[in-house]
C-alpha cells in the first residue's frame, strides 16, 4: 500500500504539494510514483529564479527503466531546487515526502493551479488505477 500523508495535496500525475508557512509551496512525487519508477538513479531539479507555467515540465526523475517529467502544479518562480538530490537521488525513494522533495516555488499571485486533490481523493484515484 502506498503511503499518502493526510496533510498534503495531490495531482492526477502523482505530484504532491505542501504549502509552507512563508507562502511558498514545496513539490515532490508521491510514494506511489517513486515505487512505480523503481530505484532512482538521477534527478534533475530546476534552477532558482526560473519562472514556470502551470503544467510545465520542470524536473525529471529517472530510474534505470523509466524516466518521467514532473509537472508544476502551479505557476510561479522557483525559489530552490533540492540540492541533496544531485548526489543522493535515492532520497526520493526513501523519503518521498521529506528529504526527497524536488523543488520549492513562489506561486504567482492569482494564477490558476491544477486541480489539487486531498489525500482521501488521491487514495481513491490510486485504487481505481489498480495501484
Amino acid at each position: 500500500m502506498s503511503n499518502v500523508p493526510p496533510d498534503l495535496q495531490y495531482t492526477k500525475t502523482h505530484e504532491w504539494v505542501r504549502t509552507l508557512p512563508d507562502g511558498t509551496v514545496e513539490i515532490g512525487i508521491t510514494d506511489h510514483a517513486q515505487h512505480a519508477l523503481g530505484d532512482l538513479v538521477f534527478v534533475e531539479v530546476p534552477e532558482a529564479g526560473r519562472a514556470v507555467a502551470l503544467g510545465e515540465p520542470c524536473a525529471v526523475v529517472e530510474s534505470v527503466k523509466a524516466a518521467s517529467d514532473v509537472y508544476s502544479p502551479v505557476a510561479g518562480e522557483i525559489t530552490l531546487g533540492n540540492p541533496l538530490l544531485a548526489g543522493e537521488p535515492e532520497a526520493v525513494n526513501n523519503d518521498p515526502y521529506g528529504k526527497g522533495w524536488l523543488m520549492r516555488l513562489h506561486p504567482t499571485k492569482g494564477a490558476a493551479s491544477a486541480d489539487l486533490m486531498p489525500a482521501d481523493k488521491y487514495q481513491t484515484l490510486l485504487q481505481t488505477e489498480g495501484g
Binding site: V41, F42, E62, S63, V64
Partner: peptide, 12 residues
C-alpha cells in the same frame, strides 16, 4: 559469464 548485473549502480 555473469549473473544479474546491478543496473542501478551502473547508472549511479
Amino acid at each position: 559469464p555473469v549473473r544479474r548485473l546491478d543496473d542501478v549502480r551502473a547508472a549511479k
